[in-house]
């Protein structure tokens, strides 16, 4: 408020008067711009400078000397997998991270839509009851989800193995697969490596991810006028034809932006990898975000971490550009 009051008393110059809208707009923006300039934009710029230095623990102190300039050394170290973190392989982490996001989002969307359609069946009993239950994973903080699922996949005391004991009538403790630490990957093709831990993470994230997709899909389904289905029925359309001709065109514009949003969220999903598998086995379920965190938290290589963040920025920029094109290319379905 004081900002606005003081601005009103400043002498008016002609430029001030001519750009009255701009001036008002900037008064509204001023608090946010000030805060973001100090704690968001400046750190990001500072980070670019850091990425060209050998910033380490010794430079942290308030009176410490400035770190030495090392050129592109930090960037090269990352590309050459020379950053102390055991089993680090930049290409493998990137490929895994992309596959992790893609596989999750596809499963989330398909399951979400399917379950929304089931729950939207006219005449189905207990709809409200099911909807109330299905929203539960959404409302639990992800860090809790991750830590609980970690315990569920415990080899000797985890709920998953207990459940398998019961289903296959084994004695308690009969099945004790160590889901999160199987050393031999299920799939290994060059940089594309999927250990069993990936499937455990996938299970947890599917549990976590489909309900919100289902909610979005339900909203889209309920916006479809029933006349369209009746018209399609009169034309003799079957269930599949009705789905393709009526349901899908309504679902697509609602689901696509949400799927893109989900892709970015899952791409940067820190908690499951960090708490469930700890990036293991052999760093095979490590993501870019968890690697970035380890560089700062465990290795204290602030310069390398800064360079790594710059790589992350460009990777995410590329993802954003690609997904935007994708969204635009399918925008014609909006009408």
């Amino acid at each position: 408020m004081s900002v606005l009051a003081s601005a009103a008393t400043t002498p008016r110059r002609s430029w001030w008067r001519r750009s009255r809208n701009t001036r008002t707009a900037y008064l509204f923006l001023l608090p946010a711009l000030l805060v973001m300039a100090v704690i968001t934009f400046y750190p990001l710029v500072f980070q670019v400078w850091m990425s060209f230095t050998d910033y380490g623990l010794k430079n942290l102190n308030a009176r410490a000397p400035a770190p030495p300039y090392v050129g592109f050394n930090n960037y090269l170290r990352i590309l050459q997998n020379n950053i102390v973190i055991p089993n680090f392989d930049f290409m493998r982490v990137l490929v895994f991270n992309l596959w992790w996001a893609l596989s999750n989002v596809v499963i989330h969307v398909v399951l979400g839509v399917l379950i929304a359609i089931i729950l939207n069946t006219p005449g189905l009993w207990l709809k409200r009851f099911y909807r109330a239950i299905y929203i539960v994973p959404v409302v639990i903080p992800p860090i809790i989800v991750a830590t609980v699922w970690r315990n569920m996949f415990d080899p000797t005391n985890g709920a998953v193995n207990f459940l398998i004991d019961i289903i296959f009538r084994l004695p308690p403790g009969g099945f004790n697969l160590d889901w999160l630490n199987q050393p031999n990957p299920i799939i290994a093709a060059g940089p594309f490596v999927l250990p069993l831990a990936y499937f455990a993470l996938l299970a947890a994230n599917v549990w976590l991810g489909w309900p919100l997709n289902s909610v979005v899909a339900t909203g889209a389904l309920q916006s479809i006028p029933n006349e369209l289905y009746e018209a399609a029925e009169m034309d003799g359309a079957g269930a599949w034809a009705k789905f393709r001709a009526v349901t899908l065109p309504f679902l697509r514009p609602a689901m696509l932006p949400y799927a893109i949003y989900g892709f970015v969220i899952t791409f940067n999903l820190f908690y499951l990898s960090y708490f469930m598998s700890g990036g293991g086995p052999f760093g095979q379920t490590e993501l870019l975000v968890t690697t970035a965190y380890r560089l700062v938290n465990e290795q204290q290589l602030y310069g390398v971490a800064a360079a790594f963040a710059v790589f992350q920025f460009f990777i995410l920029l590329a993802i954003t550009l690609v997904t935007n094109r994708l969204a635009k290319a399918t925008a014609q379905f909006d009408a």
Binding site: Y42, P43, F46, M50, Y302, A309
Partner: peptide
């Protein structure tokens, strides 16, 4: 500018904020 920051994960500013706030 706002959107670009929105795209970044929180971890992306960990190193500079740690260093800056330590000072």
């Amino acid at each position: 500018g706002v959107l670009a920051v929105l795209m970044l994960p929180a971890v992306a500013t960990l190193a500079p904020l740690y260093v800056m706030l330590s000072k």
